[in-house]
Simulated scan of single mutants.
Amino acid sequence: MKIIIAAGTGFLGKNLETYFANKGHEVIILTRNPNRSNEYHWDGNTLGEWKNLFENADVLINLAGKSVDCRYTDKNKKEIYDSRVNSTKILQKAVDQCINKPKVWLNASSATIYIHSETHLNTEENGIIGDDFSMNICKSWEKEFFKQEIENVRKVTLRTSIVLGNNGGAFPKLKMITRLGLGGKQGRGNQNVSWIHIHDFCKVVEFIIDCKTMSGPINVTAPNPLSNELFMNKLRSEMKIPFGLNASIWQLEFASLFLKTETELLLKSRNVYPQKLVESGFTFSYPDVERVFMNLLSQNY
């Protein structure tokens, strides 16, 4: 296949590129700073020569979006919104101009679209979508993506949870604080953590590409969310760290000022279930967090 990944130089993009390249597929990366032969310049806002690459492509994957690991200032809020909506809009224009369009377009979204939920398990069918900055970003993102149907182009949004891997994302930071003895619960610890192993994330993307009946929003998460307290307890156990100091809400809010981030990333309860994937027959290689920790820590401890 010919696969184009927009904004493909981050944690998820690099792993997807490796995964598909190892299977013999051609992977093309759109990035602001190209430095390899398969990378092409784009800015996420304007059409350029890169649009010609879309002819006869099989798959388009859009991962563009400013990281939410920042303070939610007005400036950052605008950049978070613009980077997601504008990139989706400009890719739509590029696809419209193709004669032979990509067969499937996967656009990033987030499991954060669902409300803070400690008891209600959010599936694609019964998930409760609320009204705050993060949820509204996701709603606007998906609205822009789905507002125009394209004949013979299957559209899918990836409502992705926390992706666990050694070469990026949240897991290296979690390992670091656990080694420092700070790997206790965050806040009350009863907020749910929805997660997926990076290998399963790549497998899910491949599965969606191959499964021609899958479209619309899809929860990209393992089927077993668990509480933050239990999540951290299992990580300490696998790392053989006997204790972990808890962090109260006020301590996290104080620390977040210095770390230039928001406590929502740790304290929001993401209780999400991959109903569409399970019902379509997808098999997780790492359905339980213990297997994830065992695998990742054996690779790089």
Rank of each mutant, 00 (worst) to 15 (best):
S134R: 13
G8F: 00
P225L: 03
L277K: 05
V289G: 04
N246A: 14
E264Y: 14
I90R: 06
Q299E: 15
A57P: 14
N107V: 00
N295H: 15
V272F: 06
D200I: 05
K2E: 03
W141V: 01
Y286H: 14
W195S: 00
G24L: 07
K143R: 13
G44Q: 02
E229Y: 09
R188K: 15
S109I: 00
A255L: 13
G183W: 05
Q186R: 14
F20G: 03
D74M: 12
E125G: 09
T123M: 08
K175E: 10
N45H: 12
S117I: 00
I61Q: 07
S117N: 10
G168S: 02
E124F: 01
I150H: 12
G169C: 03
T123G: 11
L267I: 08
S83L: 08
W195P: 11
K66C: 07
K268C: 11
H199G: 10
T123H: 03
E238R: 14
N100L: 09
L259G: 11
P34L: 00
E229Q: 13
V104K: 04
L60W: 00
W42E: 03
T160V: 10
D58K: 06
H116L: 02
I198A: 00
T221D: 03
R291A: 14
P34M: 04
W250F: 12
K14E: 13
I99T: 15
M1Q: 11
G181W: 06
A247F: 13
I208N: 10
A170F: 09
D74F: 12
E262T: 15
F20S: 00
I129P: 13
